[in-house]
């Protein structure tokens, strides 16, 4: 038996919004540690990894590890039936083929129960190595979203150059070129507005904006985003979900032939 309850459906609605354009089907792995999901996009260019830790739930019961195969579109549609303030309970039997989603209004006067058919999915799991990165940039998530969106008007790729104290995002295309320079904040009252740039060694890498724009669908989950970059390895774009976990995206770089 698996059953968990979150005080606000909003966070799970936002999590589904962050995933559904990138992946069509996925498996939620349920264990005593919480819920987790890992999936590549269909082109095998990027990977998304989600962790929602047990401690962030109101209640969490998992008698036995289970895998819930879901169609992301369907789950997102059903999640949309919840109001942001509703509390939400997810429930499934150990060998069941249904996931129950129960939404309860804050005043307890309305309870909605939806049952979603689960899928038997065989999704390849990749080992994500723990590693140190040459550069880590933290910046307001809305600012990163804006940069990716704006540069998409110019080209298909963004070149990210990180040096001490700042980062350049640049794009080239048939209509012209663009360069956006973001400087590390010197003094910030509100942590969410801060830009921090940690540089062990300067890096310069190119990534497809199409995928970065998919990743920025996670913007409503967190005021800040972190970008971890090292030469010739996937970029990590991470959004922390306060008190609950994170959504991390990994994007393979574009490299000279």
């Amino acid at each position: 038996m698996f059953e968990c309850r979150l005080p606000k459906a909003e966070v799970l609605k936002k999590t589904m919004d962050a995933l559904k354009d990138l992946i069509k089907e996925a498996v939620w792995d349920v264990s005593a540690q919480g819920l987790s999901l890992q999936s590549m996009d269909s082109s095998h260019v990027s990977l998304v990894q989600v962790t929602l830790r047990t401690e962030g739930f109101d209640t969490f019961r998992c008698d036995k590890n289970i895998a819930l195969g879901v169609n992301m579109d369907t789950m997102q549609k059903l999640m949309k039936c919840a109001s942001n303030d509703d509390n939400i309970t997810l429930k499934s039997e150990d060998n069941g083929d249904l996931l129950s989603l129960i939404f309860e209004s804050p005043n307890g006067e309305k309870t909605s129960e939806y049952e979603m058919k689960l899928m038997d999915l065989d999704i390849e799991q990749l080992g994500i190595p723990d590693q140190e990165y040459s550069c880590t940039i933290k910046m307001p998530s809305g600012e990163f979203q804006r940069i990716c969106r704006d540069l998409s008007n110019i080209g298909e790729s963004v070149n990210i150059t990180v040096v001490k104290g700042g980062v350049d995002f640049s794009a080239k295309g048939d209509i012209g070129n663009a360069k956006i320079h973001v400087t590390e904040s010197s003094n910030v009252d509100n942590e969410k507005d801060a830009v921090t740039v940690e540089v062990n060694e300067p890096v310069n890498l190119t990534f497809a904006l199409r995928y970065l724009n998919f990743f920025t669908k996670a913007t409503p989950l967190s005021g800040q985003v972190s970008l971890s970059i090292s030469p010739d390895v996937p970029l990590v774009v991470a959004y922390e979900i306060e008190d609950l976990g994170h959504v991390k995206y990994f994007l393979a770089p574009k490299i000279e032939n």
């Binding site: 590549m40 095998h44 260019v45 990027s46 990977l47 390849e124 799991q125 990749l126 080992g127 994500i128 190595p129 790729s157 190119t206 497809a208 390895v233 996937p234 990994f250 994007l251 393979a252 770089p253 574009k254 490299i255 000279e256 032939n257």
Partner: peptide
């Protein structure tokens, strides 16, 4: 011209 690498070039299947 830069070529898009696959994520599978970096992470192994488990």
């Amino acid at each position: 011209e830069k070529k898009q690498k696959s994520i599978l070039s970096f992470f192994n299947k488990t």
